[in-house]
């Protein structure tokens, strides 16, 4: 396989991990977030700083990255508890811009030059290049999906779902909206941190603009296109929305236009996402399964 395809695969997988994280916040707990790239960035910067300044390997820094991103996610989730829907969207956009400008203007974070010279990942002494990296990232994606799957089946997941469906009714069932929104924020942002860490060690050079608002929009689009609240949806969305810009590459100027058109079509015809309830795919599989039964 050519390196180009492998690199594309790695981006799909990293985006998939980050989108899985956002899916916990948006799809499971029903809290819109347009600032997820900030946490992707916090993960990447934490890994990059630990690697360049403290000489941490990817493996040593990964738990730190997860804890740091999750904690920051929890703290930044706090103000978001007081706002809902449109206002939550605006608040999270604000968080994204603030985090991006901190990376951009604080010299400690490399400023406008970003951070370079991040080490490659070593796996039992061998440097992970394209194929090896893809395997590692793929296993971390599998792990993230396993966590999502477990989360969706747990009591915590059920509590999050009930808040998504009807916050007032949930709180009158004894479910604390504050607690479960924060748990979802923490789990979702920690997953973004894992993606960020992989990104930093793969690109080996990062700068603030890699984690700007457009990236947040892209991640949210992946979740929406694939199917919010489904297990495979965010991964399918990551696959499509990472590959499509490449396919559309000759149309450089019109890429964003096509992106927007795709999103609008999705909202019009498949509001639940490609794998969501009542989607084409679901109906198709249901019909096939139904036929098999009868």
């Amino acid at each position: 396989m050519s390196n180009y395809i492998l690199t594309l695969g790695i981006f799909i997988v990293i985006n998939g991990i980050v989108a899985c994280g956002l899916n916990i916040i948006v799809g499971y707990a029903g809290q819109i977030s347009l600032g997820h790239a900030a946490f992707f960035g916090i993960g990447a910067y934490t890994a990059a700083l630990l690697a360049t300044k403290a000489g941490f390997s990817f493996w040593m820094s990964l738990p730190v990255v997860i804890i740091v991103t999750g904690t920051v996610g929890l703290l930044l989730g706090l103000p978001s508890l007081r706002v809902r829907e449109d206002f939550l969207a605006i608040t999270t956009i604000g968080i994204n811009f603030i985090v991006e400008s901190i990376f951009m203007y604080v010299p400690f974070f490399g400023g406008a030059l970003g951070i370079g010279g991040i080490s490659r990942i070593l796996f039992f002494g061998t440097r992970l290049r394209e194929a090896g990296f893809l395997a590692l990232a793929g296993s971390l994606l599998a792990l993230s999906m396993l966590c999502s799957w477990w989360f969706a089946r747990s009591w915590t997941g059920l509590a999050c779902f009930s808040i998504r469906d009807d916050e007032t009714a949930a709180s009158s069932m004894g479910i604390s909206p504050v607690l479960f929104k924060l748990i979802a924020f923490m789990a979702g942002t920690a997953m973004a941190g894992v993606g960020g860490s992989l990104y930093a060690h793969y690109m080996r050079f990062i700068s603030a603009t890699d984690f700007g608002f457009p990236v947040s929009v892209m991640i949210l689009s992946m979740v929406v296109v694939g199917g919010m609240g489904t297990l495979w949806g965010p991964v399918l969305g990551a696959l499509l929305l990472t590959v499509l810009p490449e396919v559309f590459r000759p149309l450089t100027e019109y890429r964003m236009l096509l992106y927007a058109a795709l999103l609008l079509l999705m909202i019009r015809f498949q509001p639940g996402g490609l794998l969501g309830e009542y989607s084409v795919f679901r109906n198709l599989t249901r019909r096939l399964v139904g036929r098999g039964r009868s």
Partner: peptide
């Protein structure tokens, strides 16, 4: 007290128009 604490103390509400969780 917030409503989820009241719920834990044993008050439960059957809301107007049911308000079940539609996607569960």
């Amino acid at each position: 007290l917030p409503s989820h604490i009241r719920a834990r103390q044993g008050i439960r509400l059957v809301p107007e128009r049911a308000r079940v969780f539609p996607l569960l």
